[in-house]
Design a binder for these strands. Structure first.
Lengths: 139, 139
DNA sequence: ATTTATGCAAAATCTTTGCATCAAC
DNA sequence: GTTGATGCAAAGATTTTGCATAAAT
């Protein structure tokens, strides 16, 4: 089942309507080859209104279907979420994100929260650097 | 030595001038009781121009004298940096940040980068939840 | 038929920039 | 006296909102 179908089904289940613009946004997200800004998504969807794209992105992010990654310069990019909780390696060169999960890392984070009497409800980890292929040949 | 003095000295060393508006911004940052947005900082400095506040914040952030913390809602808050590399516990209730360092956590991150052939150049870790005092009595 | 979603354009944010003036060195 | 910093207001960039219309259920 594709992301578009899956997300669409999920939306319908919760009571949202399956509309043509919504599906267009889902397809655009699915076919994105790299993490995108809302602006870029907007450009790839000339037929869909600004507000609709923003509203859909917000919706998908709230439903955890889309992950939002803050870059070092303060800008925000989105990427289709691969599912569960994960972290990102963000390449400064090509801009690609690589997802990873690390239970030990999460445990360490949980431990820090505990040590500070902090009730942990969420966390974000982003690594910035240069990915293997960029380091190798650059592109 | 206070933050204001320290930051001022640091700026002068690098060749920036010590000006009244700049010092006013430094003092406002030093006396902030909680992480602030640029807008809040602006409001606390009615005599200083918008542009100057933005320029100063950017400058201090680049010099690592100020840390920039992205909140879950996408907004950005700043806090005087306690110095070296660290991470944050962000309380969703009161908005206070607690800094912590964790070498083991950093090592784990380095290890993940290595495992992915990624040249690590920086990373950010934010924990979100409820701090001890908010969980206890609220405030 | 209802009710939700859309599209537009306007408004609200948030941040940067150009430029004349001013202050620091 | 040079050069860098400031303040203003204007321009950009980014996101949200109001509202009439259109589409989904």
């Amino acid at each position: 089942m594709s992301f578009t179908e899956l997300a669409n089904a999920r939306l319908e289940t919760i009571g949202f309507r399956s509309t043509a613009p919504r599906r267009a946004v889902l397809r655009a997200i699915e076919s994105a080859s790299a993490p995108f800004t809302v602006e870029e998504l907007l450009e790839s969807l000339p037929g869909v209104g600004r507000a609709t794209v923003f509203r859909t992105v917000k919706l998908l992010h709230e439903l955890d279907l889309l992950c939002r990654v803050p870059l070092e310069d303060g800008s925000i990019r989105y990427q289709l979420s691969e599912g569960e909780h994960h972290h990102h390696l963000v390449c400064r060169r090509c801009g690609q994100f690589t997802e990873f999960t690390d239970l030990e890392l999460d445990a360490r984070i949980q431990e820090q929260a505990r040590a500070h009497g902090f009730t942990l409800e969420g966390h974000a980890v982003e690594l910035y650097g240069v990915c293997r292929s960029c380091a190798a040949g650059g592109l």
